[in-house]
Nucleic acid binder design. Structure first.
Lengths: 150, 150
DNA sequence: ACTGAGGTTAGAATCATTCCAATTCTAATT
DNA sequence: AATTAGAATTGGAATGATTCTAACCTCAGT
């Protein structure tokens, strides 16, 4: 699903902003906006700590708890995706295009890969009868070219 | 890939046993054997704690650390798979057939789903050039029929 | 029996994440 | 502009899964 255009509210008085995404109206506080902006400007699937570091340059006082809060809000609003690749920290991405994650097990890099053609994974598997699908996560683990050539 | 037949070593003196799987020769201590057996006899993708509980009935003295040890060994030997569905505990499965996991977000149940046809996920995505694939994980999250009907 | 290489253990340590209670902020209403 | 209710934010504590550590044990080969 292509990402919906993100717009501010027609009434951005004070700090109040909103985003209209996928029909949902999401309150966008300054912190949430910064967390979202950091993520939208990153292609490396940062962790919560990474995001804290990057947001701190603009909002020195922000706490890790707030970053987690913002990430939870943005995730449940459907603005970002949470990615579980391995044990340990979750990673996040703001790419809402249909895509999968290639995870290099050597350097840890995570690279988005986009489908060559329209493809519905659910259709290819015999899912349990009557199941309703909310989300699919495909991660391919391996070694990227630059690590393989070393 | 269908699971290779699992056999004991030709020389099972004392506690020494081995499994030959996918060409690798794996030393199978009694604890590893029990952990493997518990997993092979389960279809519910137990967590490390679940496995500890089940193994304890046969080996009351076994510790959680040993269960983790055994799971790590069996995983790196390719005898079992580790599954990351969400934050929190990892789950494990001994089903080595090509399959994916359907995760019900209401009851937490994890159900294996098998491909309707031979299908190579890697071929459907434009993976980074030169990448070597070692493992793919596809999880579909949703609501199972019995939870949906409530 | 002796030895070296794992295997096993309990408990401590670590790390990511969540919870909590207090404080601050926002937006709508007086 | 003051009031107020509901959210957002905070630091720190708590939780929970996993990993680490150091000591002990067992096996297989000498």
């Amino acid at each position: 699903m292509p990402p919906t255009a993100i717009r501010s509210s027609s009434k951005p008085t004070g700090l109040e902003c909103r985003m209209a995404v996928l029909g949902a109206d999401v309150r966008l506080t300054p912190h949430r906006r910064e967390v979202y902006d950091v993520l939208a400007g990153s292609t490396d699937h940062p962790t919560a700590y990474d995001i804290l570091d990057r947001v701190k340059s603009r909002s020195p006082g922000i706490s890790l708890a707030t970053v987690y809060n913002c990430l939870d809000h943005l995730t449940s609003a459907g603005l970002i995706k949470q990615v579980h690749l391995a044990r340990g920290q979750s990673r996040y991405c703001a790419n809402l295009h249909e895509h999968i994650h290639f995870h290099c097990e050597v350097c840890g890099k995570v690279i988005d890969a986009h489908p060559a053609a329209d493809f519905d994974p659910a259709a290819f598997w015999n899912l349990p009868k009557g199941a309703r699908i909310t989300r699919t996560d495909l991660a391919i683990h391996g070694v990227c070219e630059s690590c393989a050539s070393k």
